[in-house]
Design a protein around this nucleic acid. Structure first.
Lengths: 338, 338
DNA sequence: GTGAAAGCGCTAACAA
DNA sequence: TTGTTAGCGCTTTCAC
């Protein structure tokens, strides 16, 4: 099927190790210019390509980076993956993609599979869900000293590198934006589940209110779990409260979409009657004209690769937490009050 | 680092081939119940995991599927990838992700890299761009008899399996929708570049007009190439024409977003003044309330895996073109005329 | 039912 | 500068 180093060696009457040295040798080429030339020419002619499995097996280095993540068809997850891919391409690594369904065992099964292919490093997108899940495979990774970066969770910062954004600060920034626009009764849809991202965002919201000396109203805070049903229920409950809030901060753009729909159905105009701010800078919010907080997913992915690579080069370096800045994207869903 | 079959064999005083037969042997297990049990128990205890590089090297089968695609952070590309991942997970394959920038050599470089890892099959997302690009690596794939499915191009249906949607039919459906709403002056933004998808969609638009006995007006047809600038320029040119069109069919949701923005800036209301229909069912259109054509990206990805798998099982089967149905998603951007 | 042996394609230490 | 040798971890005949 494809030519091997041995085939080239045979044809040229040299040993296969000479061929190996010329074609795949690291550093200086221990071979005469003449032999080297012959070998290289024939390699091109026969379209020789090194077998990565063989070299990986022998050298214990595959130039593979495993990526364990859930669904990748949101602009956030897709952005992270794109960042990882771009960074990997630059440094000659390939991405081996694992898929974790949203249950604990599926993830560790996937990680184990990635390890079976002897990836040189591992990137895990925790997505805020990962706390107990990660424990299922963390030990194995740590034991093997496998370079590993976790995106979106700092829960295991002592054992792996973490690449995160500050959800508390981001949510506070979003809330502060509303406060600066003059809003005082600001509702919050989100949180109330096990994800740290949700909890952090809620805390950021609370902190911004406190900093501004605004008392938070528990009736204006409704949990929500990334679904049409929960988002709709949350905003409906909030709309029962009197006086009505003049703004809503939703912990994710996807849920903000459903909130917007519900407001629309009730004849409540955004931003005229109620201002709306989401989180995550998803594509769905773009169409909506939704003010939101960008998490720079591509940078997140690229940084994770950088951390992993750094650890491949310098094993045993202390684990780091890289915290990326979020950015407020103001669109028409939040407008200055009349 | 991790236990090998030899390690287990040593501890149990059996040969490594016996261990291999028990742990990774296909079909019947040629081993006594007792030995097998001992081996299995120890394997679990030591957390044995087969080295996929080794078995891949020897058996010439890696359970790896290579995926060559451009950016994956749109809901379309992400959806395809997600479909591929889900299908692969079901059948015990892993996805090795290649990344092609938008130039010819980058793609073939990526494909070659995927081949270096001895993937069992290849999926390429042509995205309408792929015609000349694919030629750069097609021969190599065909020569090796590597199972290969191309998504979004039927240009090489004689040499690989193709999984496509009918862009002509989809665009015709979208246009017909506008016609049925009573529109007669329907503009089109899109096409005019080398992608077949664009050309097909324009042809679908033209066909629907013809079928309805509506003469097409060249002034109402403006090329566009997936960018803010080209989309904005296209709609601006169209808005010079008198009488104004009452509807616009844009060949992609992304461009439809920019068209919408421009209309908005000009004080033209959608759908009251001008109805708008896009293509692709991207997330950005969701927020917009944009009528569009869904291409079922996840199904596309899943079908590609199915084709590749089929060819792995039955090499030499005739190449097939799988054509998936598109679906019109009606939202508020197209409304019945008053 | 089990072991010995060969080898997938490659790298690297050691000799020559 | 080059060849020999010994594997990496595994599968698969072929004997016994």
């Amino acid at each position: 099927m494809s030519v091997s180093i041995t085939e080239i060696a045979k044809r040229l009457n040299v040993s296969h190790s000479t061929v190996s040295r010329v074609l795949n040798g690291r550093g200086k080429q221990y071979a005469s210019e003449q032999t080297a030339r012959q070998i290289r020419d024939l390699a091109v002619e026969l379209n020789y390509r090194p077998n990565r499995l063989a070299s990986g097996l022998l050298r214990g280095k595959t130039n593979l980076i495993g990526v364990a993540m859930g669904r990748c068809n949101s602009s956030y997850a897709g952005g992270i993956l794109e960042g990882v891919r771009a960074a990997c391409e630059d440094i000659g690594y390939q991405v081996l993609l694992g898929r974790a369904k949203n249950d604990e065992l599926s993830e560790s099964k996937q990680v184990r599979l990635l390890l079976d292919y002897k990836v040189d490093g591992l990137i895990c997108v925790a997505d805020g869900w990962g706390h107990e899940r990660i424990l299922h495979w963390l030990d194995e990774v740590v034991m093997r000293d496998l370079p590993c970066a976790v995106i979106d969770s700092r829960a295991y910062a002592d054992r792996v590198d973490c690449v995160v954004t500050d959800d508390v600060a981001g949510a506070a920034m979003a809330t502060r934006h509303l406060i600066e626009l003059g809003h005082r009764r600001i509702a919050h849809v989100g949180g109330g589940d096990i994800r740290t991202t949700s909890t952090d965002r809620r805390n950021g919201y609370l902190r911004a209110l406190a900093d501004a000396g605004i008392a938070s109203d528990p009736a204006l805070i409704q949990g929500c779990a990334y679904s049409k049903e929960s988002a709709t229920a949350a905003i409906q409950t909030i709309l029962e409260v009197r006086p009505l809030p003049t703004a809503v901060f939703v912990a994710s753009d996807g849920d903000a979409y459903w909130v917007w729909q519900t407001l629309n159905d009730r004849g409540i105009r955004v931003p005229d009657d109620i201002a709306l701010v989401g989180y995550g800078n998803l594509d769905v919010g773009l169409g909506l004209g939704l003010t939101t907080v960008d998490q720079a997913p591509q940078t997140l992915g690229a940084m994770a690769v950088k951390r992993v690579l750094n650890r491949i080069d310098r094993p045993g370096a202390p684990h780091e937490v890289v915290e990326l800045n979020t950015q407020l994207i103001v669109r028409r869903s939040s407008a200055a009050r009349a």
